[in-house]
Design a protein around this nucleic acid. Structure first.
Length: 263
DNA sequence: ATCTATTCCTGGCTGC
DNA sequence: TGCAGCCAGGAATAGA
């Protein structure tokens, strides 16, 4: 599942390949194109130069000459492969003046969208990476609700998903069902630090490869080896040896230690 | 505002 | 070996 560290790793492995290149041709399969018809997107992209590859939360943003943006969201199983083959799971191919980008997506949840000049993905909070403690605390304090659903909400903080929320909450010693606005400054600071640490370490490791994720060169990530709770239900907690618990929160598998994580 | 359930989708896994 | 049934979950959506 590409979350912030995986999308950032893809951005880093792809940016040097596509920045400055011109799009010769592109095709897309429905329903990949979120807003409009695939052939309209193809026509818009033809001949455009990619100035820069940015990231906001889990969105990859290809900044095009003239101010438009191609917004790419990988959702669950989307991959962007540099010079990949247009095989069984290809949903889009973007041919550049040198090389090509193949979008593969087994489960077809991924979406691409065109934004005109001055437009962009709507309703996103600030990117999780580089978010200050002050702003982070303010955004959680102003909300009712439990901490895990809030951290998963992209309008609150952009970029966190199921894996990194579980990992950050464990490292901060906070229960996923804790009321966010009742977290004191100490625990808020610990949570902020845990998020930064987990995201930075995961980027350093090239992301987490549970099943499908690979970067633009086809390389798997290594951070799954460092997961402390995610996917470890029933195994001993790395801190206290009590079995890691699993429950469902917001329709998502939630992994935590009932000894180390307090409400 | 916050919550839950539903939808999309298919490879991989479990159990028989 | 085959097969049915379930599971994984990001985000949009509807309804309570």
């Amino acid at each position: 599942m590409p979350e912030l560290p995986e999308v950032e790793t893809i951005r880093r492995t792809l940016a040097c390949r596509v920045e400055g290149r011109r799009i010769r041709a592109a095709w897309f399969l429905s329903p990949l194109v979120a807003d409009g018809r695939p052939e309209v997107l193809s026509a818009r992209l033809k001949g455009a130069r990619i100035e820069r590859l940015d990231r906001l939360g889990k969105h990859l943003l290809a900044r095009l000459e003239g101010g438009a943006t191609l917004d790419i969201h990988l959702r669950m199983t989307g991959k962007l492969l540099w010079n990949g083959e247009a095989g069984r799971w290809a949903r889009a191919v973007i041919e550049l003046d040198e090389g090509r980008v193949v979008f593969e997506d087994i489960r077809q949840f991924g979406r691409m969208r065109w934004w005109g000049e001055g437009e962009g993905p709507a309703g996103l909070g600030p990117d999780a990476l580089g978010l200050s403690l002050r702003e982070f605390a303010a955004r959680l304090k102003g909300r009712r609700g439990r901490v895990k659903p809030l951290l998963l909400n992209q309008a609150v903080v952009a970029g966190l998903g199921n894996i990194y929320v579980d990992e950050a909450l464990f490292r901060a010693g906070i229960h996923p069902l804790a009321q966010a606005r009742r977290l004191g400054l100490t625990r808020m600071r610990r949570l902020h630090e845990a998020i930064m640490m987990v995201l930075n370490e995961a980027i350093e490791a090239g992301g987490s490869s549970i099943a499908d994720y690979v970067d633009a060169e086809g390389a798997r990530g290594g951070f799954q080896e460092w997961h402390q709770v995610y996917g470890r239900a029933g195994l001993p907690c790395v801190r206290c040896a009590a079995p890691v618990q699993r429950m469902v929160v917001s329709q998502r598998g939630t992994h935590y230690c009932r000894v180390c994580q307090r409400r």
